[in-house]
Design a protein around this nucleic acid. Structure first.
Lengths: 109, 109
DNA sequence: TCCATCTACTTAGTATTATTATGTAGAAGT
DNA sequence: ACTTCTACATAATAATACTAAGTAGATGGA
């Protein structure tokens, strides 16, 4: 799907939070997960800026670990603030998605 | 619902397109429709910037008509380009919404 | 040894968008 | 005159995804 970037604003960060919440992981792997999820055009630079923002906003804990096949990885886990933020994200998403779908359906009646 | 603004980016314009597509209408009324739809915090300034953008991008036809209870209104209708844009919007929305929900559901299993 | 490739992270700058703040102005009632 | 409701315009701001360019470790082949 082409040019989703504006529509991803506000939701991509939430997706990253969700991915981290599932399992401790690192940037490069998160990119792969997003890609295989269907967001094929999401690229490293985008995810790393989000991760740095999460770090700056103190939503994640970070542990650096060596890799056997490349440079060391920064592993992320959600802290309490991060989990709270994730809940807020889903609450907002459910609200907006329901309203938008409501608008969409009314047109098909 | 508080502070949805970042999540509205990329979708609010689509909502405005959909509202116009239903029925020829004008800015002030569109604000009311969005409010009653549930987007309570969307305010005039926001919608007018969107409408000016739609006009600049030649997605709408405009007709100015006098009002009996105030200053003249600018009535908007979608032209062919506008309808095409609306279709694209829904295509993108369906794609993103399905992917996000997929991500969400996988976590609940 | 040198080079390419894959892995992995960083950062400065850009574009787009919703929002805020402020202003203008018509009509109607008091 | 003053207020209120209707109606539109616009400059400035904030947040975010994205682009581009770079650094660097490890591996394997030429």
């Amino acid at each position: 799907m082409e040019n989703l970037t504006e529509m991803l604003k506000g939701v991509l960060e939430g997706c990253v939070l969700e991915i981290i919440d599932r399992k401790e992981t690192y940037g490069y792997e998160i990119v792969r997960r997003l890609n295989s999820l269907g967001f094929a055009d999401v690229v490293e630079g985008t995810v790393y800026t989000i991760l740095l923002r999460l770090e700056k906003n103190k939503l994640v804990d970070i542990q650096k670990k060596p890799s056997e096949i490349g440079p060391p990885r920064k592993f992320y886990t959600l802290n309490n603030a991060g989990r709270k933020q994730l809940q807020t994200f889903w609450r907002k998403w459910d609200f907006i998605a329901s309203k938008i779908n409501e608008l969409k359906m009314k047109g098909e009646s």
